[in-house]
Nucleic acid binder design. Structure first.
Length: 810
RNA sequence: GCCCGGGUGGUGAAACUGGUAGACACAAGGGACUUAAAAUCCCUCGACCGCAAGGUUGUGCGGGUUCGAGUCCCGCCCCGGGCACCA
């Protein structure tokens, strides 16, 4: 094997990573970003550096996004592909607590290791525009956004229920509550009311929902967003309190069932509970409310538990029929949704039915399906469609019609009104934690909550050794007197800083706006650069963020637009979620001990092979099953390609190969932008198999296009081979994506399947321009086909041009 | 319970708007080269019957539409993920 050196992945990858860095192949100056032609912003979700290193799932995610970016670059676009670190927040803090190291020391070390790994896999990252959310140069502007929303009236401080561990005396996030117990000390978790900061995302519900239709996002993600927003149409109805002034307002999606409302239920926290409670029921009501308060938030929202509740002793009047109905309280009614009160229609709502059955409350049927006996007792709630019964003048109306007419009736008497409600609740952004950007507010006894002036940003997070949540019950920052003691920006008197930090989701709700302006210190984002690069052209990330992160990013973008800071309101034009990598059919986890460590793999096979293998496993949007043995495929493929290119001769493309080449270009060109990486790689393999068939030596013209098409997947080896066939200037700098000629794709001989009565009986080869008659003739000449049609008459023949002939005989 | 995915050989998976099921790989078996091993190359590879030609059968299950169904329709089962007392 004369003088052809073997493929040494490590050497090739070292060489090209160094050259890319030296040449600035993947990095932009700010000037270059500002003047870029045909910009393509290729974004991927930045990682939490909350582990020593990246796991294979991260590598999978980034590689898939990188393939996409590299492809568009070869197609001639100016591709900006930044990366960063979502380094603040509970993930990182919990990891720091677990390993017992101060996050100020630990997280930068993690970031450093992540950076090393990201460089090693050969991502086309712009290392001159990195974002680290813990960098004061970044979170200064996170605080700025808080202030802008505050000025814009989109921020509010109010009481909210939180999970509270009475033993640790601390607030717990939902994920820290395990089966109703504190994950650290196993004490039963309670609810407590705390003052918290909220972003009023609820105001944007309708817009967030309507815009979904305009987004090029995968269907499942759009559905998830729509479900989360949860629009429901119905009515608010006032039930006057019996024996005194005032009314209880309820929200219902079924105003048509108003005649069937036989009792009411208020959330235990409802402000009218005290007023409605009679002296005789006072003790029972108080006891119930205490008991509910002892439950954690998750437990309270469980569907499958026994209904509980207690009668207040009070009554309200059903406005449709003047009937007095009892008012109960129960924890299945939630204060956060609607009005915190419902009219109960046990005949037509499963929950109400269950409650009524438990407490022996009356059930009145007001909707009947065809043929139903409206007076027969129900053994379950009837939730199907039907017509109104036992509903006075409205009897006989359809559900749809009944809704409209009853709402109309209520409106005419001032007793109710049509109303749309959203499930989307306001975003609680405050965290009683250490590792986050301090909320830029000063509390003054005289002036109240005063925003920190912009000129004083950032409000630096002080380094403290005692960052663990302890039994003080409030943020760790509340222990640092020297930090929180300050003066009021408004009146100058002694005041106290807000000691909560903001939610990590706020850090990540605008990082994509920062990337192109990452080096600016005078503004969060440069207006010109921003309007050139945003909204993001392609965003790729995990489905775990399909709801919250994407929703919050959309909200912040909308709010910033309304406040005049940007000129677009949807941040991500296109979004695709990648799938999950599992190992031998099982989820990877430390406890299973089946975690694939990327470093080891890359050392053994090289980054290109690992990238190819990951992309070859299965459809990118569906994920794949990692199996150790499978990596042999791409390993051998790259070795064969290497050898083929090095021994390629100076000759034109062989005629037989040419068709396959153009077919391959066509396939790969359409598959990569659709993220069908596995089949694109298969097409390249097929082509190489044809090029090498029978041990023939390929020509340089045959292998040159494959090098370019391989480059998105295996950029290092592609560069090396590109250089070795005579290019000196770098593949990604100079190569163009190969073009195919549609005329050269067409086969001149076609293989037609011949069916008799729908069963395949033979195949015939015909010229591609053969007429139907010629195909039929060839088919009849086929011995096996003839066996099945001889002696019978052909009743029908179906010819699918170029593919198949079906002869129906009788 | 609701909303998304998904179920195809021993394995990962292909199959464009209904049109020759299993591309491309892995594993396995056989062979070549080699002192040997590795590497490489060649062949076989859904099941059943058959020496072969070929036949039967086959895409989770049961029906249906169609000349023709992995693909469409109806009714189920199983796996993965998300949401969930949202009135």
């Amino acid at each position: 094997m004369s003088g052809i050196d073997r493929y040494d992945a490590q050497a090739v990858e070292r060489k090209w990573q160094a050259l890319w860095a030296a040449r600035g192949t993947n990095t932009f100056t700010d000037e270059a970003l500002a003047t870029a032609k045909d910009p393509f912003y290729n974004l991927m979700m930045f990682p939490y550096p909350s582990a020593e290193g990246l796991h294979i799932g991260n590598i999978y995610a980034f590689t898939g996004a990188d393939v996409h970016g590299r492809y568009w670059r070869l197609r001639g676009k100016t591709v900006f592909e930044p990366i960063g670190f979502d380094a603040f927040g509970i993930h990182s803090e919990n990891y720091a607590l677990k390993v017992g190291t101060n996050p100020n020391d630990l997280i930068p070390r993690n970031v450093e290791n992540f950076t090393r790994q990201l460089k090693r896999i050969g991502g086309m990252f712009d290392w001159d525009h990195v974002v680290d959310t813990t960098d004061p140069r970044y979170y200064r502007w996170t605080q700025w956004i808080f202030l802008k929303l505050f000025e814009g009236g989109l921020v509010e401080r109010r009481n909210a229920a939180v999970n509270w561990c009475p033993s640790c005396k601390t607030v717990l996030a939902n994920e820290q509550v395990v089966a109703g117990l504190c994950e650290r000390c196993d004490t039963a978790v309670e609810q407590r009311q705390f003052l918290q900061w909220f972003f009023k995302i609820g105001q944007y519900a309708e817009r967030l929902l309507d815009n979904i239709a305009t987004l090029d996002w995968s269907d499942s993600t759009r559905k998830a967003q729509a479900n989360w927003i949860g629009r429901s149409e119905g009515a608010e109805v006032d039930f006057p309190i019996e024996g005194r002034k005032g009314a209880v307002r309820v929200f219902t999606t079924r105003p048509d069932t108003l005649f069937g409302a036989t009792y009411m239920v208020l959330a235990p926290e409802h402000p009218l509970v005290d007023e409605l409670t009679t002296p005789g029921q006072r003790d029972a009501v108080d006891a119930y409310r205490t008991q509910v308060g002892k439950r954690d938030l998750i437990e309270r929202k469980k569907t499958d538990k026994q209904k509980t509740g207690v009668f207040t002793g009070g009554h309200c009047v059903n406005p449709i029929n003047g009937q007095a109905i009892p008012v109960w309280i129960a924890d299945y009614v939630l204060m956060e949704y609607g009005t915190g009160a419902i009219m109960a229609v046990p005949a037509h709502d499963e929950r109400d039915f269950e409650f009524a059955t438990t407490f022996d409350l009356p059930i009145v049927r007001v909707i009947a399906g065809p043929g139903d006996d409206a007076s027969a007792p129900l053994d379950a709630a009837f939730t199907d469609d039907g017509v109104l019964v036992n509903s006075g003048d409205f009897d006989g109306a359809s559900v749809e019609d009944g809704k409209r007419r009853i709402v109309g009736y209520l409106e005419s008497r001032g007793a109710g009104t049509a109303k749309v409600n959203f499930r989307l609740h306001d975003w609680c952004v405050s965290r009683q934690r250490y590792w986050g950007p301090p909320i830029p507010i000063v509390h003054c006894a005289d002036c109240g909550a005063v925003p920190v002036p912009e000129s004083q940003l950032p409000v630096l997070l002080p380094r403290i050794e005692d960052f663990k949540p302890d039994d003080s019950g409030i943020s760790p920052l509340a222990r640092v007197k020297s930090w929180f003691e300050t003066t009021c920006p408004s009146c100058g008197k002694a005041a106290r800083r807000e000691t909560d930090v903001s939610d990590t989701f706020l850090d990540s709700a605008w990082y994509f706006m920062r990337y192109p302006s990452a080096n600016r210190d005078d503004a969060p984002f440069d207006p010109q650069v921003t309007s050139k690069w945003l909204p993001v052209h392609s965003y790729i990330g995990g489905n775990e963020h399909a709801v919250l992160h994407l929703m919050y990013s959309r909200f912040v973008t909308m709010a910033l637009k309304d406040l005049g800071h940007i000129d677009f309101e949807e941040p991500f034009t296109r979004f695709r979620a990648h799938g999950l990598i599992i190992n031998e059919g099982m989820k990877m986890s430390k406890s299973r001990g089946n975690v694939v460590v990327p470093d080891t793999l890359i050392e053994q096979y090289g980054a290109d092979t690992v990238r190819m293998y990951l992309m070859f496993l299965g459809p990118y949007e569906q994920g794949g099953d990692y199996r150790d043995a499978g990596i042999q495929g791409p390993t051998a493929f790259l070795a064969r390609l290497w050898q083929s290119v090095l021994e390629a001769e100076d000759a034109p493309v062989d005629e037989a190969v040419e068709r396959k080449l153009h077919q391959t270009i066509a396939r790969v060109t359409s598959q990569i932008p659709n993220l069908h990486y596995n089949t694109a790689i298969a097409a390249l393999m097929e082509y190489l198999n044809v090029v090498r068939a029978g041990g023939r030596k390929p020509s340089r013209a045959e292998v040159a296009p494959i090098i370019v098409m391989l480059a998105p997947f295996a950029p290092h080896i592609a560069e090396e081979l590109y250089e070795r066939i005579g290019h000196t200037e770098g593949l990604f700098e100079t190569a163009r994506w190969p073009q195919f000629d549609p005329a050269k794709i067409v086969e001149d001989v076609l293989d037609i399947g011949v069916q008799v009565n729908g069963k395949l009986r033979g195949r015939v080869s015909v010229a591609s321009d053969a007429s139907e008659a010629a195909v039929v003739e060839a088919a009849r000449a086929n011995e096996n086909v003839a066996r099945f049609i001889d002696g019978r008459t052909i009743r029908k023949q179906i010819y699918v041009a170029g593919k198949l002939l079906n002869l129906v005989v009788g």
